[in-house]
Design a protein around this nucleic acid. Structure first.
Lengths: 314, 314
DNA sequence: GGAATAGTGTCTTTCAGACATTATACC
DNA sequence: GGTATAATGTCTGAAAGACACTATTCC
């Protein structure tokens, strides 16, 4: 940034100025790390294994939320922009320093961290799983990849109770739901260890304190630290939107060369829906270019490898 | 948020824990306030006056950047979420407490504030100009609306200089531009006072420190405080994108009832392009509903007033 | 009737979805 | 030839863009 030139009067003012006399928060940079990879353990010979969308979580070795799982992150250092703190934390955990990194949100709700006033600036990162080398797992460091399932359960029937009165209440709640809001179930699973983390999120009613972009509050939560269930939910929804706007983001989740089937699978994982192959290929054609190479080691017809097209016309 | 339950061991740990022994930044919440309104002074009788997209800026009465123009904002208070700080500042300046508010970005670049380590969490707000009541203008408080012009000048010819050597340099820069980036000119004007603020922004090269969402650095700047030229640029680009994704955002810039011509004008202002009326009306039909009322006080055929349709199917 | 704005009808092109079909590998 | 995957061709309907046209108001 261009240096700002000060008058002597201003220099004098600043010399006597002390920001630190006011209350200040601690600021953390946290990262929702996305990648796409196989569940390595079930390398069965039956069929081509689908790669799954996963996020990286770390088991907390100390208080607070000791034993719970949390996103990688840490406090910002003076002299470092916040996004660079996120990149530093990301690199420390994964060894990757050139991932795509983008802001997800700022989380500063009072009480979100029992240690005190901590504001989290949260980023999402997209990386190629093959390039990632997780930090060795010592005692304080248990980092694992979890599959992500985020499903809309807004319209699911409320559990029907015995009494008529409760039924009426459920109907009122149901109609409220239709008006006000989405409800999501988040399930994160690590296949190696059978660890399963779950949460239920509801979109906050926006009529009270002004409208704002979607934001969710935690109704139930199992095994996730702090408000990370909420943050992960918003990150996954944000990723879906971002990729819809810019298809090219998906390339950051894959190696340099890939088959079109692999690429299609990435979009299917992100959007949690099936795509029809011919339509997908027509759409993606402008973003990719052929190489001379073919995929090796598969059982049936080998697929051509593609790379990202640098000069994609937009 | 649900209360987290602690063990005695954890309570003991937290009692001895002091976040404040680490370096902490000051955190500010700033707001890019958008509205759509006429230039009141040129109420000429020739033709219907177009309303323009404007942002609200405040002339700084003290150091640093005394006399420059800045977004409304202020430091976050303990016990207050960051977006609520933004809403509070917004309400103090405009009297509006129910605007649409959304995060734009987090700005923490070292040196961005000469007073010290200050991280700005910046929001955009959309409001109906008619509901807005600006804080009375005392000495320290000069708040004005500025028209926004943000134009892409990436492909504009570099000024040709005399010597051949400089020409070569210009060509290299030009080819670099094609690869790497957009360049924007931001012009903010207040018609009452003939104040004109200008800046030139260039998208930062993303090949060095990893890819991330668009971010701009200030090449030239006249009259805008801190890094606000950059932030405003990113807010305007963000607004364009957001409205493209969700057409309904435009309603937050208008009163309860409006004509379709007014509504079309809002989109034309935001996107800085002309829309063809029949196509626009076909597209917008699902979001609006007729009222029985007609616009009063215009010179020719009166236009029907519409309201936002609450149950718009998405 | 003229001028200015409000509002509609329709043709064409483009693009997304559905789905049938062919191609190539290994067994 | 059987099977599983890779890759392509084509029909259809919806939506986007272009643009000519009608309607209503004041003068």
């Amino acid at each position: 940034m261009k240096k700002y030139e000060m008058s002597d009067e201003e220099k004098k003012f600043l010399a006597g100025y002390d920001l630190t006399k006011y209350d200040r928060p601690s600021v953390a940079a946290d990262v929702v790390v996305f990648s796409v990879m196989k569940d390595d353990e079930c390398e069965d010979a039956r069929r081509l294994q689908e790669k799954k969308l996963k996020i990286l979580l770390i088991r907390r070795g100390g208080f607070p939320y000791k034993g719970s799982w949390a996103m990688p992150g840490g406090f910002c250092r003076k002299g470092e922009d916040v996004i660079d703190s996120a990149r530093r934390e990301l690199c420390e955990e994964t060894g990757i320093d050139d991932a795509y990194v983008k802001l997800v949100g700022v989380y500063g709700e009072p009480g979100r961290d029992p240690r005190g006033w901590v504001i989290s600036s949260t980023y999402m990162a997209l990386m190629n799983a093959r390039a990632c080398r997780l930090k060795a797992g010592d005692d304080a460091q248990d980092a694992r990849w979890f599959t992500v399932e985020l499903t809309d359960v807004s319209t699911e029937a409320t559990e029907v109770s015995g009494t008529g009165e409760e039924n009426v209440k459920n109907e009122v709640e149901a109609s409220h739901k239709v008006q006000n809001g989405k409800k999501y179930r988040l399930v994160l699973k690590n296949a190696d260890s059978d660890i399963k983390l779950t949460a239920v999120l509801r979109r906050t009613d926006m009529s009270s304190c002004g409208r704002s972009s979607d934001s969710y509050y935690i109704e139930e939560c199992e095994g996730l630290a702090f408000d990370h269930a909420r943050i992960i939910t918003e990150a996954v929804l944000g990723l879906r939107e971002d990729v819809r706007r810019d298809m090219e983001l998906a390339f950051d989740l894959l190696p340099e060369r890939f088959t079109l089937t692999e690429l299609q699978n990435v979009y299917e994982q992100i959007w949690d829906m099936e795509l029809t192959t011919p339509n997908f290929r027509r759409k993606i054609a402008e973003y990719v270019e052929e190489t001379d190479a073919y995929q090796a080691g598969e059982r049936y017809r080998p697929a051509k490898l593609f790379t990202r097209r640098k000069d994609a016309r937009k």
